[in-house]
Design a protein around this nucleic acid. Sequence first.
DNA 1: CTGGGTGTTGTTA
DNA 2: TAACAACACCCAG
Length: 158
Amino acid sequence: MKQIYNAVYPSPIGELGILCQGDSLATIDWLDDLTQDFSLEKNTYASVCLHALDGYFEHRKKRHNLPELLKQGTEFQQLVWSRLLQIPYGEAYSYGDLATQLNTSSRAIGQACRTNRIPILIPCHRIIAKGGIGGFMGKQQRTDRKRWLLNHEGFEFH
DNA sequence: CTGGGTGTTGTTA
DNA sequence: TAACAACACCCAG
């Protein structure tokens, strides 16, 4: 079964596969994590998403630049993702902070962040652990990418 | 370090 | 329904 994308964005931290659904963005995948065997289908909305990624990686911090985002998940996950979208560029909070705000537990926040299908634009990387950077896209994997994104926004992680 | 607490989710019966 | 394990965590000792 072949994976389908509508566009590929060559970011500084790897090629990203963009998948839209109608006039909204559904998924951003890192291509090097998956089989390179995918097919490209045309979708007129993909260019809007590429533009938004350009805006992020070139330090243009405009918020109104965001495309429509397809939030497919449970009610709780959508609540957490909506809260993530309110965190501005260059700010970060702990899982516990967010848990207090939403009246839940830090582990539940991590669980919801983990199911985010649109990394970077839904900025799950701005949620970090109290005693470390926390995870990214899996258990303790790919924290190098999370660290890169945070450093890009002006933090100093090593 | 360790051990117990936590909310949400998916799986299983 | 209900039990259970998994999970990008946290805190007191």
